[in-house]
Write a protein that binds this DNA or RNA. Structure first.
Lengths: 335, 335
DNA sequence: TTGTATGCGTTATCAA
DNA sequence: TTGATAACGCATACAA
């Protein structure tokens, strides 16, 4: 069905090894045979079978990328960065979205290992979850780089300083006179959410403020979750004056809910998000996260490991995050 | 490095074929050997080499998906739909984004063919471009399904009724009394853009209106493009009263530009988009496009072709699109 | 019930 | 400069 090297050998009357040699630009062939081979390959539309090639060469020129949610701009940027570097290396990437499901994550990774990818980039669930499948990769000494570290696991990883991000957001609100501050967490399995939330609580305490448990909303994941929480907030008798949202998508949902009810951000409620995504209509004050850069860095680190092997030290990199103030936080009188 | 069937055979003292048989759930093995094999596989972390398997079995259980822009929600939804069906079939998908670049599209497809994917789903550039690489797929009788048809090429495809969408948008504006209507096109290589724009022009003519060439903006692709065009529009001496944007992302950009200058949609400018993406803060009137459904349909059609072969007729499906009126179009006095 | 031989499409090694 | 052959890891047909 597909034309192979053996076919070309038959057509040209040359040996398989000759065809292979020419096609791989090895030296030591006469110009005449070279031309003959090239012409035949062109004519019959020969495309080398990378699979068979991978069987012998130990490189499949393929990496796997496992993200959590393909519809979130955060991962879009990560993916874009990874793809760009991978393509520059002549690599193709298998992309899978776990959909924040641990089982799916395990299965996707196994599928990729089965496909003998040369390496993996994984954004794993990091909380309330086991890591056997990651340790298994290490045992197999299959190169991989993680978005987010696993305590006690020495490997390549990249992460964001989420604790700092949470603190910056909280401090900004406090500096602007807010004392009734709410928080929307992401999924329980999200390390980023946990860190941001911890930082938020710590900052409150450090500033002598107390957290009203009614102002904490858990397990938001989507735009619609943001909308629903926004609706709940605006029906409260005593609303918080500000709300920190796990990410921009959720923040947009919250803002949507408010605007639908005729309320205004930041006049009626201050909102801070995380990620600093494009496609943000609202002038949202948010914690900017270098996702695209991180994606490229992850890929670069992975390729170093793939090519240099296990010898080199593991690379770890924490990206700084930075609050970008725009116009979604109201300055309150006091302070 | 990676544990193989041969390794397991050595460890257990059984033959390779026995291992293979047990692992593939063939009948005719004693419970004792079965357990022995399974236990060894478990213990050594055996993962079948899908690549070697693909060499013999003719199925790599892999499909390729080539989209145009991974950061656009439109393609996120397509991708999500495709992934979902593929995973249900036990397939893994190679994802590539061509970035609207024809060369890249060709290279990505070749890379996937080289990887011997069982089939391909492609969202190709459709205008001002050659299709040799697609015809080549057909020649190879490699199953593929297209998002958007290629004139004269009999194959599986799915598309949206973009002409109808363009008409609905234009008619809606006209019904609301608009006569000074502008249009932002997508890239020259976009069939969807071309159809929507044609429909727009035709509808204008059919209603006795004339198109002001100053009101047409070409080649927008991103949120930022939308912002720039928005800024240009609001600096015009005589602005259009309404603007149809190639997609929601661009529409958001336009709205952003207006709001930054203190202008209001729809009071100062009516705006219509296409796609009906989530994460839309603004109550945008837009043409809703069943992207997620289309993604699933593309995958289903592809798998039918993969499994049933060339015998069955090619499937073609045009999805209806529908204007969703929200609050970005102003009703003008007359009419 | 288990083992042996062969082929899948390459590349690499060696021989001619 | 070219050709023959083994090997990669698996599935399959066939033999024991």
């Amino acid at each position: 069905m597909n034309v192979t090297i053996a076919d070309l050998a038959k057509m040209t009357g040359l040996a398989k090894s000759t065809i292979s040699g020419v096609l791989n630009n090895k030296s030591g062939f006469s110009e005449k045979t070279r031309q003959k081979v090239l012409k035949a390959a062109e004519q019959y539309g020969y495309v080398p079978n990378e699979i068979a090639r991978g069987l012998t060469s130990k490189f499949t020129k393929t990496i796997g990328l496992v993200i959590k949610d393909i519809t979130n701009p955060f991962y879009n940027q990560i993916t874009k960065g990874v793809q760009e570097i991978a393509n520059a290396f002549g690599y193709t990437v298998f992309l899978c979205s776990s959909g924040e499901d641990h089982e799916a994550e395990i299965n996707q990774i196994e599928a990729m290992v089965g496909r003998r990818v040369d390496g993996l980039i994984i954004a794993p669930l990091l909380e309330e979850v086991t890591f056997d499948h990651i340790y298994e990769l290490k045992r197999k000494s299959l190169p991989f780089a993680l978005l987010g570290k696993i305590p006690g696991l020495d490997c390549d990883w990249v992460e964001f300083d989420d604790y700092s991000g949470g603190r910056q957001a909280a401090e900004h609100l406090i500096e602007n006179g807010h004392t009734q501050i709410g928080f929307i967490t992401g999924l329980r399995t999200s390390r980023a959410s946990k860190m941001r939330y911890s930082a938020f609580k710590d900052t409150l305490v450090a500033n002598g403020l107390t957290l009203n448990p009614d102002y904490v909303f858990h397990e938001a994941q989507s735009f619609m979750d943001g909308v629903e929480i926004g609706q709940r907030v605006l029906q409260m008798d005593r609303r918080p004056t500000a709300l920190i949202c796990f990410d921009d998508v959720i923040a947009m949902g919250v803002i949507k809910a408010l605007e639908q009810s005729g309320l205004k951000v930041p006049d009626d409620l201050s909102v801070i998000g995380f990620d600093d995504i494009d496609m943000m209509l609202f002038p949202l004050t948010t914690v900017s996260i270098p996702t695209y850069e991180a994606g490229k860095t992850l890929a670069r680190i992975l390729f170093e490991r793939i090519f240099d092997g296990e010898t080199r030290e593991f690379k770890q990199k924490v990206f700084d995050v930075k609050l970008v103030t725009r116009n979604s936080v109201k300055r309150l009188h006091q302070s």
